[in-house]
Design a protein around this nucleic acid. Structure first.
Lengths: 159, 159
DNA sequence: CTAATATAGTTCGTGTTATGAACAGTACGT
DNA sequence: ACGTACTGTTCATAACACGAACTATATTAG
């Protein structure tokens, strides 16, 4: 039987495989990393953290309550409170009590937030467009469809 | 002329567009988010943070120096020091001085690290496979090729 | 060979991100 | 009116990430 706690010894690798020939799933992981990096770089250009930028991007289509926002961003409510706090302190975002349900705060962009949010959003889209390079319309649509299906599957899996 | 600093007023959105019909670039952002979430969930199942899991996954093919690791993970060296410190404290990873260059530390997995690293890796791949659903070989290859090209483009862009 | 420079990592101080538990207020069904 | 569910905050804690300053080793120039 194997024991879980090992002495701190290095273990030599089986075979140092080079970067060639990666599978689709691995490619997806790498791609995700690339997208995150792009997001981070563009955000930094606008003096935002990646998370703040994500937040702003989710608000450009209109105010959203904390709970919905938490679901969108996959954050615990306490995490979101902090994120919104900092964004509010920077004047990017405002909390407004809902009229219909006095528990909920509607989070909306200030005009500063809208400006920097759309700028970041557009920047990210543009950079991703560059990375995509030349891609004809059929492939673009097929790709979009495939990804959309994956996202839907992930959404399903969440119940 | 517009001034950068605005009073903290909410700005009403132009048009609350629903989730239908998103562009490819946006789909990529969402997909990236999904992949990150999967990574986080699987990591948590193995009592790892997403970053620790990323670290381990980068080491399964053999030891890597801190500098290379930093480039792989896109981390400043000071950030990486902390990440490796915590991983080492958990017995997942070991630092070994290189024989040829006595400045560099080779980071290698312990057998614990190898085990949990491959388990996490396999888990992520499996979950992504589920999300991909049925996909015939030609499309799979086309998709892999497209993504690989994007990754290469990103690598290029970094100089 | 020595001096200058570059590279590998760490340490330290600071700020951000993320979580869970405990809590307060509001809505809603019975 | 009561219990329950939901919305959001506070608090304590930990991981994460960065830049500047620093040590030590390697490399290059003269």
């Amino acid at each position: 039987m194997t024991h879980t706690t090992e002495s701190a010894r290095a273990v030599t690798a089986p075979g140092p495989r080079l970067t060639d020939e990666i599978g689709l799933e691995t490619a997806l992981v790498r791609l995700s990393h690339v997208v995150q990096r792009v997001f981070g770089e563009v955000s930094r250009d606008h003096d935002l953290t990646a998370q703040q930028a994500q937040l702003l991007c989710r608000l450009v289509d209109g105010p959203v309550g904390m709970a919905d926002l938490g679901r969108m961003l996959d954050l615990e409510k306490s995490s979101l409170t902090g994120l919104v706090d900092r964004a509010e302190k920077r004047g990017l975002v405002v909390r407004t009590r809902s009229n219909t349900d006095r528990r909920v705060y509607q989070i909306s962009l200030t005009s500063d937030g809208l400006q920097v949010g759309t700028a970041t959003h557009d920047g990210v889209i543009a950079r991703l467009g560059e990375l995509l390079g030349d891609i004809d319309e059929p492939e673009r649509e097929q790709l979009t469809a495939r990804i959309t299906r994956m996202i839907a599957a992930a959404e399903d899996h969440r119940r």
